[in-house]
Computed example of a mutant assay.
Amino acid sequence: MVTIRRAKEVDRQVGAGEVVGLLGRNGMGKTSTIMSTMGLIHASGEVEFNGKPLHTLAAYKIPQAGIGLVPEGRRIFPNLTVRENLVATAANRRHASNPWNLTRVLDLFPKLGERLGNYGNQLSGGEQQMLAIARALMTNPQLLILDGATEGLAPLIRLDIWRCLDELEALGQSILVVDKNLSHLLKVADRHYILEKGRIVWTGSSSELQSDTTLQKQYLGV
């Protein structure tokens, strides 16, 4: 589905229905990879989505192509209500038969239903993250990208986010996720890429990564 190439070689790829983890210590290029995929920064190489180049498109065209982003820091609209944040991005460009709409995202995150009239800056960090995910889903993306899915959140909120990702995986949603919570990520993701100074140093399945504690310490330990 999405392919990121450097020097004509395939570095990173997310296929239809896959959940893929992008891992590495701070400053190793995870966010830069996502930003370049979304056209927000320019980097060498190529990005393809469904066989079509993305790196030649203006940034606003990339979400329209079918990629939904939950950015680091959430970046919800603070002066819009929860409802306005959600409906502002709503689209069903692929004409899905059961699209994500206000009812469906509120079923996924019931807490947002209690806060529909609150402004973005009146929400807790966990509620803002729920809103950021719901907002991305309202675009009905083929690929959902989460940068820092549960970072900085309270333990109970983290569990709610992982529960959400479990449900999305069961629905066949393609997901690329960055997070430091390896134990939960290993349960959700099919496979992973580990980045070191902007380069892929390892790729493999969750079971392979879980069994290799030396690899975890080498590239993911503090």
Rank of each mutant, 00 (worst) to 15 (best):
Q218A: 00
L165V: 01
I4M: 12
Q13E: 11
G51C: 00
L102V: 04
T3Q: 14
Y193P: 05
W202Q: 04
L22D: 03
D160C: 11
H184C: 05
I4N: 03
E208L: 13
G27I: 05
H184N: 09
L40N: 14
E114H: 13
G125K: 11
V10T: 14
P63A: 09
P78A: 03
V19N: 10
I175R: 04
A136P: 02
G68P: 00
G29S: 12
G172F: 10
A132F: 07
L22T: 04
K111S: 15
K197C: 02
V20R: 11
D147N: 05
N181W: 09
N26L: 04
Q13A: 09
K52A: 14
K187N: 11
A65M: 15
H192R: 03
I62D: 08
L144I: 00
A170G: 01
V70K: 08
R94K: 06
R104V: 14
M38F: 15
D179S: 14
G117R: 12
D179H: 13
S183D: 10
A88H: 07
Q122P: 03
R135V: 05
L123T: 03
N118P: 10
A90W: 08
R25A: 12
N140T: 03
N50G: 13
K8N: 07
E46S: 14
W202I: 05
V47D: 04
P78H: 03
Y219G: 00
M1E: 06
G152W: 09
S44F: 14
A59V: 10
Y60A: 12
L54D: 12
G39C: 12
P141T: 01
Q218F: 00
T33Y: 15
A154L: 15
L182K: 06
A59T: 11
L185T: 13
L80T: 00
E72H: 08
R12D: 05
L106S: 05
T139V: 08
A58G: 09
T203A: 12
A16C: 06
L176C: 11
A65H: 12
I161L: 06
G204D: 07
G152N: 10
G73A: 06
I157T: 14
S36H: 12
S211T: 13
S207H: 09
G29T: 12
N26I: 03
L195H: 06
R94S: 06
L168E: 00
T89K: 05
G126W: 10
G198C: 00
R163M: 09
L54T: 11
L182V: 02
T214V: 09
S124C: 12
